[in-house]
């Protein structure tokens, strides 16, 4: 059983798991590690995003954090150093969120091996649908990594069954049609969407995209086993930096409040 599977078993009946996202290397390697460590204290699992020059699935906040990380000289290998360090300190699941070109460039086998060596439990490649991902999914499975797939409100039922069968760890369900970013409330479509996904799959479900505040987390936590928060945490760190506060403390505080809302 993977660390991610074990987390969902533990969380079951205790509210939902909070999966926190941080952009690796933002604003620089040292502070990024501090932010990630602070988040790990309060969340159930951590997702580290690899900054990409062309983040087409990301809204303004994660675009900006990626840009700043790259400007500070981020290299893909840095994310493996970072997870390696975090792994020594924490037993919670660590995941990588990456655009496919990084995996393609490094090679499926090399990427999977580096991730596994660094103590990574799961990988999310949002621009790699299963039709294009056979080789990568095999490489990930070979290294014992959970390759997490996605469901959107536009996904038809027969396809929900397919991705539900192919995903590992959990199924990441998009709470909005759109990019990552801060939004208010939960779309009225989300409830019926989650019931549809539930009827088609037997894996834990996580809701993410556009979930930013405790009230949204409370609502999302009633619909899914996991809730992913990204932009709001990155923005908390960014705002703290811009006003001279401690970004790790500020992001950690928000994670604690979000988690508290989910019990």
């Amino acid at each position: 059983m993977s660390r991610i599977d074990a987390m969902f078993e533990t969380v079951h009946g205790n509210g939902a798991a909070l999966i926190a996202y941080a952009t690796a290397g933002f604003p620089d390697p040292r502070v990024s590690l501090r932010i990630a460590a602070a988040l790990l204290e309060h969340c159930d699992a951590l997702e580290l995003g690899i900054p990409f020059s062309d983040p087409v699935l990301d809204g303004p906040v994660i675009q900006e954090s990626s840009r700043r990380a790259l400007e500070a000289g981020f290299r893909v290998r840095d994310v493996f150093d970072m997870t390696g360090t975090l792994r020594e300190r924490s037993g919670k699941p660590l995941m990588l969120m990456t655009y496919y070109n990084h995996v393609h460039r490094m090679g499926h086998g090399a990427f999977a091996a580096a991730a596994a060596d660094a103590g990574v439990d799961g990988v999310l490649v949002p621009d790699l649908p299963p039709e294009e991902g056979e080789a990568w999914m095999a490489a990930a499975e070979g290294e014992g990594l959970d390759n997490v797939l996605f469901a959107s409100m536009s996904t038809p039922e027969h396809r929900l069954r397919s991705v539900g069968g192919l995903t590992r760890g959990f199924l990441y369900c998009f709470a909005v049609r759109g990019t990552t970013g801060l939004r208010e409330g939960l779309d009225a479509e989300v409830g019926p969407f989650m019931r549809r996904v539930r009827a088609c799959s037997h894996v834990p479900l996580a809701l993410g995209l556009g979930i930013s505040d405790p009230e949204q987390c409370r609502q999302a936590g009633r619909l899914a086993e996991g809730v992913v928060v990204g932009s709001a945490l990155v923005k908390a760190a960014m705002d703290a930096l811009d006003s001279g506060d401690d970004p790790a403390a500020r992001a950690g505080e928000l994670a604690r409040a979000l988690k508290a809302a989910m019990y």
Partner: peptide
């Protein structure tokens, strides 16, 4: 077709 799930349909 290397796109997010939202664009598959």
């Amino acid at each position: 077709r290397y796109v997010p799930e939202t664009l598959i349909a």
